[in-house]
Amino acid sequence: MSDSIELVYEVSGDDFTRAGEASSDVKKKLKLMGVHHDIIRKVSIAMYEGEINMVIHANGGTITVVVSDTDVTMVLADTGPGIPDIEKAMTAGYSTAPENVRNLGFGAGMGLPNMKKYSDEFNIESTVGVGTTVTMKVYLQ
């Protein structure tokens, strides 16, 4: 069994000029590691949506990505406002994105549903006033 690789990214809040950088970097690294194209796509979609949510809704946070022999695990932790009703937030089409963010093309309310759909394991924990942690796993085969 080979060692797993850990990548850590600090995501800053409200900075759209850098939004997506962590996901792009992971995509490039997985490509270099020779990970299958379809798996990279799943990781890219799931992670980008999570990264953007941190920028828009949580004033940034930390993303830790671990690539092992069997899977890619992404942990997205923020100390933002938290999500009062997770079930509602997971509903396709539900969004609290403000007007300025909608003008950039966000706010379809599809981010969390995409994250669940494109990851093989999905878990979200959130406490209002404390923050949100999303953990996603994509299997390598």
Binding site: F16, A19, S23, G105, F106, A108, M110, N114, Y118
Partner: peptide, 27 residues
């Protein structure tokens, strides 16, 4: 809408959109 493009975007496609910002390039 970026999160729809994110899940439906077709590989090798020409993407026609009215969103001209850094997020479009990332997606």
């Amino acid at each position: 809408l970026l999160s729809i493009a994110m899940s439906r975007g077709i590989e090798d496609a020409a993407w026609v959109t009215v969103m001209g910002n850094i997020n479009t390039v990332a997606v």
